[in-house]
């Protein structure tokens, strides 16, 4: 049976269609409406980019209180795979599902640029198809993408292998602490990153490296299937 991936849609989401299209390349993809607490039995959830509810207060600050996020939090606690991209990453941090916070870029400007990121943690459902240290060309585009946590938290995440992605040397676009582009939950089922893998699934638009994150879900599920 095909893997079913749900993509959350908030009012103000911008990248949900692209995330849906990217998910559809590896499985069955469907929209999860922000006002519903029912995830409909999907196997994985993507919280996409955009400006949820306008994000006029602080990115993700309102979205985390939406009904769908209650269900996503429950799903994550039960070990369900959740991927937050850009605004979705901000939402997951606001919801306490991932550590740290996303602050305004150090340049104080929106920035759209193709960057290389390095896979630091391949043993998650969203990175299983990648090798440790693998370099992926994926665009960033954000106003508040500077990942930040206090020194103790950073040290703990580094020690426990929760750093999922790092910007390649010299390519940190926003001043993120320790070049961190994405982090994961301790168990690894929840992953968030600022770069946009859903915009990098077709070579004609610049890169297909982002597809690896989505195909990781298949690999993960095949793995589960074989084991049971």
């Amino acid at each position: 049976m095909a893997t079913r991936i749900g993509v959350v849609r908030f009012p103000g989401s911008c990248d949900e269609q692209d995330a849906l299209d990217a998910c559809a390349l590896v499985g069955d993809a469907e929209i999860l409406w922000h006002g519903s607490r029912d995830l409909g039995g999907v196997d994985a959830v993507v919280v996409p980019g955009g400006f949820s509810y306008g994000d006029y207060l602080r990115p993700g600050a309102i979205a985390r209180f939406s009904p769908v996020m209650e269900a996503v939090a429950e799903f994550a606690r039960e070990g369900g795979p959740v991927l937050g991209i850009c605004n979705g990453f901000q939402v997951l941090c606001e919801a306490g599902l991932l550590p740290g916070a996303l602050l305004a870029n150090n340049g104080l400007r929106f920035l759209c640029r193709q960057v290389d990121i390095i896979v630091e943690r391949p043993n998650t459902p969203w990175t299983a198809a990648c090798d440790a240290g693998e370099r992926l060309s994926i665009p960033v585009k954000h106003m508040s993408g500077r990942w930040f946590a206090d020194d103790d938290t950073v040290a703990r995440l580094e020690a426990e292998g929760q750093v999922a992605f790092r910007y390649a040397p010299g390519q940190n676009p926003n001043g993120s602490v320790a070049d961190i582009a994405g982090v994961s939950s301790p168990e690894g089922n929840v992953v968030g990153l600022m770069p946009h893998p859903e915009h990098a699934v077709d070579a004609i638009t610049g890169s297909a490296d982002g597809l690896k994150l989505f195909s990781s879900i298949l690999k993960e599920r095949e793995g589960v299937g074989t084991a049971s």
């Binding site: 400007r109 929106f110 859903e198 077709d202 638009t205 610049g206």
Partner: peptide, 25 residues
């Protein structure tokens, strides 16, 4: 142009500065 999102909707085959016109699939 780096202050503008030029890739959303995943159609942009040629971004600013890559060709004389923008190309959208």
């Amino acid at each position: 142009f780096e202050q503008y999102d030029h890739i959303v909707q995943s159609r942009t085959v040629r971004r600013p500065d890559e060709a004389d016109a923008a190309v959208l699939a």
